[in-house]
Design a protein around this nucleic acid. Structure first.
Length: 193
DNA sequence: TCCCCGATTAACT
DNA sequence: GTTAATCGGGGAG
């Protein structure tokens, strides 16, 4: 990854990138031009040494984006019906990524409700697959460069560490002991306390 | 090829 | 608190 890349700050270990991404924004432009924008409020880090990570057993067709340069979207399909989105981090060749677990709507909330077809308030985007549905993020965005529409990552100033809560990750069988889940303190869109 | 189960969600009791 | 829905990845054979 080039030093002048807009996402040079994500060229670091996944746990550092996971903290850095809190407070940053995702902007989705729908086919009809509608803008959906949301603030990242909950993340989890995954890397190659981690038994819970898709990259634990090496590079495959599915997880290839995790091994690419930082700033690209890794989208995977899970439980036969849901999508989850991650942002690749670390240098090219390293299988690291940050799972986006929750966001707070900033623009186009009504359109997000239309995309989801159910749920309002925090229920709209307080889970990894909920936010993908709300922002119309599917497999089509696997490998997408987040510097460009129709899906952009907008870096914001890093949050104070006092505003970040660090806990164990959710929904995994192994790797529970490492505290690689991060969320914005007191934010009502966080998936679980 | 077959088979198991998952970085989840919503609808139950 | 429990469980069905639903399907592709990848380890096992």
């Amino acid at each position: 990854m080039a030093l002048n890349s807009p996402f040079a700050e994500l060229n670091c270990p996944a746990p550092d990138a996971a903290r850095r991404l809190l407070g940053c924004e995702l902007e989705r432009t729908l086919e009809d031009g509608t803008i959906l924008r949301a603030r990242i409020v909950e993340t989890e880090a995954y890397d190659e040494a981690d038994p819970a990570s898709h990259s634990y057993r090496g590079r495959t067709m599915r997880n290839a984006v995790m091994y690419g340069p930082a700033g690209f979207m890794y989208v995977y399909f899970i439980y036969g019906m849901h999508y989850c989105c991650n942002i690749a981090t670390g240098p090219d060749g390293h299988g690291e990524a940050v799972l986006i677990r929750a966001v707070e709507p900033l623009e186009g909330e009504g359109e997000m409700m239309a995309q989801r077809g159910r749920g309002d308030g925090a229920q709209l985007t307080n889970g990894p697959s909920k936010l993908c549905q709300a922002m119309a993020i599917t497999q089509e965005f696997n490998g997408h460069d987040l510097t460009h529409a129709p899906l952009r990552l907008i870096l914001k100033p890093a949050l104070q560490s006092s505003a970040i809560v660090q806990t164990a990750r959710i929904g995994i069988a192994q790797g529970v002991e490492v505290l690689w889940r991060y969320y914005v303190k007191d934010n009502s869109y966080v998936s679980r306390r």
